[in-house]
Every structure is written in C-alpha cells, then in structure tokens.
C-alpha cells in the first residue's frame, strides 16, 4: 500500500512534469492574452491495483489532468506513460491500443450517456472498437458487463432517461470496464448521485477493483470518501500538487497548510464536533500568481519567503512529499489533532 515511492512493480500510469495552459483571451487579438495555468508541472505514479486520489477544489486542475490522461486534451509539455509506453506523442495505431487501457467514469450520469441511444447500443460500442464480432457475441458480452455491474441485462432495451441516476452510473461503469482497461479514471463518480445511492456505487467500484485488479485515478473533493477508497492521496492547488502521501499517512498527519485547511473545513456528520472555517479568502487570480507560493494569500503561516519563491515538492518522511517552505513547523499540535480521529460520544 505504501510502496508508491519504491519503483519495484512497473507503474500502470506515470505522469511526469505535465503542463497544460489555457489561453483565456478576449476575442480581439490586440487584447492581452491571459493564461490559465490549469496544470502546471505535476508528476505522480500509480501502481497496478491501487487507487490514487487527486483532491482539490474547483479550478485546481484535477479534471484537466484527467482529460490529459485520457488524451481528450493534448498536453503542452511533459510525459504521460501508460503501462510503460508514452502516450503523448504516439503513432495512431499505438494510441488506439493504449487508449483501451484507460477508461473513464464521468461525474454526471445524466449527461454522460447519449440520450437517443439505447443502453445496449451505448455498451456495444467499446466492443465494436475492440473488433469483437459477430453481433451475437457482442450482445453476449453486453449482457455480461451489465450483470457485472449489478444490472438486469434486459436494461439494454431501454433508453437512458428511463433509468434512475444510480442505474445510469452503473451503465457508465459498465461502459468503462467493457474494454477491459487496466486503469479507470473516476471523475467525482458519486457527487451527482443521491446520498442513499452513493455507497452502492462506491461498493461496486471497490468490488471491481478487487476482482479485476483495476487501478483507479480517483478525482474527488470529498475527503471522507477519499479516505475510504484511496491508497495514495495527492492534493492539488491551482495546477500544482502541494502534498502527496499514502492515505494513512496523509490523514493521520497532513503537512501542507492547505491540506490541513481542507480537512478542517469539510463538515463532519456529527453535531458534537463542530468545525470552523480554517482559512479565509479565495483562490488567487491567475494574474496575481507571481513567483511565490500559490497558497500564500490564504495561508495562515505565510512569511515573506512565500511571496518570493515557489516551494518545490520535497520528501519529508518516507514517501510523504510536501511543497511548503514551512513544512517543518506544520506537524499537528495537540489541539489540532481533534480533526484526526472520530471523537466518541
């Protein structure tokens, strides 16, 4: 579980110095072009059968990272390796083959299924792409994946709008596993679902991971959920990874002030343990970034150094990396540790 720093098994996914900037400009060419640094040099590794959670708030670049890995966007620079092969500059055939190794489960099950196609038609596509023939063989496999995600195979005859949110998300998962990928990118897979359905879907994903040896890149803002499903946690802030550690280490002792703030702000479903807003202010606008730390305007620990130089990710204990100038001082003090464990009544 905590072997992510050691390189013994070949990682399923390796991202190195990945950069993607978007030009957000006015429509007139003489207007100054502003760049959104959506993903600004991130690196991580994901081992077979494990789950890496990308955590962060809107605009931190986690969804852009997902799209880059799925090759729905092209990176400006950096390298993405799937199963040891680079996908950033692949040949056309290689790309098709590689693409099959990674699939995605989308956030909104209402928007991610083509509304005018029957479930069967949607699920036949991955097999068509794979070159499965003839048709009855495809239909057989469609029934198989539907059963695998806990749905009645007859659902293939229905249209998406006839299904509930939970059923649709199961179809989304069925589509993702149909191509027998080794990695699935889950982009907030339950946040659009009803609360009473979420745990079903999480259980299904955990089941599939165990039975098929899948790796997950799990994108979420829900830290309780991340704590439950992930092996490694990477926290993103404005396009950078600011902290990365095995889940147990991270939740016991987060070291970046932003990670600590995130943990402290997420509302605990226990009225006897009230949380308080841990940080003030909002994400810095792209124009103000400058040279320093991106979190400095909200950071309770910011000093003049933080405005002058951007902290690099550095290893502080085994496999625990933090990008903070004051990482030595951020270990939890006694009273702050109330956030770590669930208080008894």
């Amino acid at each position: 579980m905590n072997s992510f720093a050691t390189a013994d098994p070949e990682p399923i996914l390796e991202v190195k110095d990945l950069v993607k900037h978007f030009a957000s400009s006015g429509s007139w060419s003489w207007q100054q072009r502003r760049k959104t640094r959506a993903v600004d040099g991130i690196s991580f590794k994901l081992l077979p059968g494990s789950t890496l959670a990308l955590v962060g708030e809107s605009g931190c670049g986690k969804s852009t990272t997902a799209k880059l890995i799925l090759q729905l966007l092209e990176p400006d620079s950096g390298d993405i390796r799937l199963c040891g092969e680079s996908v950033t500059k692949p040949k056309k055939n290689a790309l098709r083959r590689l693409r099959r190794n990674v699939q995605m489960v989308f956030q909104d099950p209402y928007a991610s299924l083509t509304p005018h196609l029957k479930i069967g038609a949607i699920l036949r596509e991955p097999f068509l792409v794979k070159g499965v023939r003839p048709r009855y063989e495809i239909n057989e496999r469609v029934r198989f994946v539907l059963t695998a995600v806990g749905l009645d195979p007859n659902i293939a005859q229905r249209f998406p709008h006839e299904l509930s949110g939970g059923q649709r998300q199961r179809v989304g998962i069925a589509r993702a596993i149909a191509g027998e990928p080794r990695l699935i990118v889950c982009d907030e897979p339950v946040s659009a679902l009803d609360v009473s359905i979420r745990s079903q879907i999480i259980n299904l994903l955990l089941d599939l991971q165990k039975s098929c040896g899948l790796s997950f890149l799990f994108i979420s803002h829900d830290l309780d959920l991340v704590a439950h499903v992930s092996d490694v946690v990477a926290v993103m802030y404005l396009g950078k990874i600011v902290e990365q550690a095995p889940a147990a280490t991270f939740f016991a002792q987060p070291r970046h002030p932003y990670s600590q703030a995130l943990l402290a702000s997420s509302p605990i479903p226990d009225p006897r343990r009230r949380t308080k807003p841990a940080i003030r202010g909002e994400i810095m606008a792209g124009t103000e970034l400058g040279a320093g730390c991106r979190f400095r305007n909200r950071c309770p620990l910011a000093v003049s150094l933080c405005a002058a130089a951007e902290p690099e990710l550095q290893t502080i204990t085994e496999s625990h990396e933090v990008a903070c100038h004051r990482a030595d001082e951020t270990a939890y003090t006694h009273e702050a540790s109330q956030f770590q464990t669930h208080a008894n009544k």
Partner: peptide, 13 residues
C-alpha cells in the same frame, strides 16, 4: 452509508 475518516476499514464495503 456515509464514509467517515477513521471509522470502518478503508476499502471495505
């Protein structure tokens, strides 16, 4: 059904 930090085993159903 809510996952909670520090409650229940990670990755359990």
């Amino acid at each position: 059904s809510l996952p909670r930090r520090g409650v229940g085993l990670p990755k359990s159903q």
